[in-house]
Design a protein around this nucleic acid. Sequence first.
DNA 1: CGACTTTGACCGGCGC
DNA 2: GCGCCGGTCAAAGTCG
Length: 152
Amino acid sequence: MDFGEPTDFELSEFLKIDEWFGDDPASFAPIIAAMEDPFYHSDGGLGVGDLSGTSGPNEGSSTSNEGGRPVKKKDVKERFAFKTRSDIEILDDGFKWRKYGKKMVKNSPNPRNYYRCSVEGCPVKKRVERDREDPSYVITTYEGIHNHQGPY
DNA sequence: CGACTTTGACCGGCGC
DNA sequence: GCGCCGGTCAAAGTCG
């Protein structure tokens, strides 16, 4: 996520929520539920895009790989990211997340956190990163759909 | 006692 | 062919 650098994708991929719902993290629940709704990623009304082609993992190989194309990372799941103005990145959206990695971003002095749903069988992954120019803002990226009906 | 967090190292892919 | 990059896993430690 290179902010400030116009590449193939920018903030347009993200749902910018400048107007935070408030200080209640529970407000996330409906949001997550909304992104899981077929209606959303059906019409693509939200920022559910194809980041798979970002680096072009399959663009150059299309030369002679139309048939048995070695789709490796092609099965990109729904990706939904939004920017939020918050002081903490560990906003509990109602789900249980287990951190499985931390990494430093080049364009950002801030580390990137990798979370995953604690529920077994849940392929949902969450990526939390701070804005490079506005530490007050947090970029939360959700990937995948929850296997279980709800966090409760 | 169980579950989760933390850091470092490892892996695979892409670019040059 | 090598280097870089992002992403993931694993072991130990900590917290409740």
